[in-house]
Nucleic acid binder design. Structure first.
Lengths: 136, 136
DNA sequence: ATAAATGCAAAGCATTTGCAACCAT
DNA sequence: ATGGTTGCAAATGCTTTGCATTTAT
């Protein structure tokens, strides 16, 4: 007997995952849509959304809800932190090690922790430099 | 000469801030709306949104975008972290000290850091216990 | 007096969903 | 053959906005 809710391997799903794995830009659903369209002009936005949801439910990608209205997606499954530039909007992976013992600290308060998420806000190197230049 | 963009003190704004300060529940805009309506039945949702925006721009409150589509708001201005229960959806302030030196670490990578945000995901004490009981 | 703020209703816009056709298994 | 998946379009639902009016200063 086949498992209920079995996930099929479709061309759309493949391309979406490919696109996501081929960028470090933490794209929005619409950006993914535009990219996938280059290879499958007939693909629909609904399919993009359905697949992004499926993929993140199955742990293939990560959904990131930052301050803005729309979600962004990340195919990097390793634990890592993000930096959000408040000037240019760019989101970058940070190359710093996961903080040790953080989850334990919270578990001692009675919570069962499955993950944590850490984001930094400010100006990226480029924008910070530009502000300097303008002597703003 | 009065400053441009001066912020007036209105009854609506006062009540909204009052409501926000009177709860620890990180409410949504709509929840705030319902509460404010109890005192000002004629208030409009637009006013709630405009004020929440103004208030957070002026640092009176904090806007929190969690995984879901809609924002939540927090009148607690002190640096603190949050726990999001993936079972009941509850969001709770965490009583753990801010991690030292985190911002410095990121600044050394060339970023200018103004703040960071840390959230834990999992089960709150209540939900965790219930899962145990069900021997799930 | 003057511009900020409000209420109301009409957009806006990202995301979701119903449905018939389609296709991976 | 079966039911997960798709494209399409309509629908949701949170949030924003235009505008005439009110109101804080």
């Amino acid at each position: 007997m086949k498992p209920k809710g079995f996930v099929r391997r479709t061309r759309q799903r493949e391309v979406i995952l490919e696109v996501l794995r081929g960028t470090k830009s933490h794209p929005t659903a619409d950006w993914v849509y535009q990219e996938v369209r280059k290879e499958m002009p007939q693909v629909s936005l609904g399919t993009i959304y359905r697949n992004l949801k499926t993929l993140s439910e199955h742990g293939e990608i990560q959904e990131l809800a930052f301050g803005s209205t729309h979600s962004r997606f990340d195919a990097n499954k390793d634990m890592h932190y993000h930096f959000v530039c408040e000037q240019c909007g760019m989101i970058e992976d940070l190359d710093i090690p996961p903080v040790e013992g953080l989850d334990d600290q919270v578990e001692q308060l009675g919570f069962k922790v499955t993950s944590h998420r850490l984001e930094f806000y400010g100006s990226c190197p480029k924008c910070a430099e530009e502000s300097m230049g303008k002597a703003n």
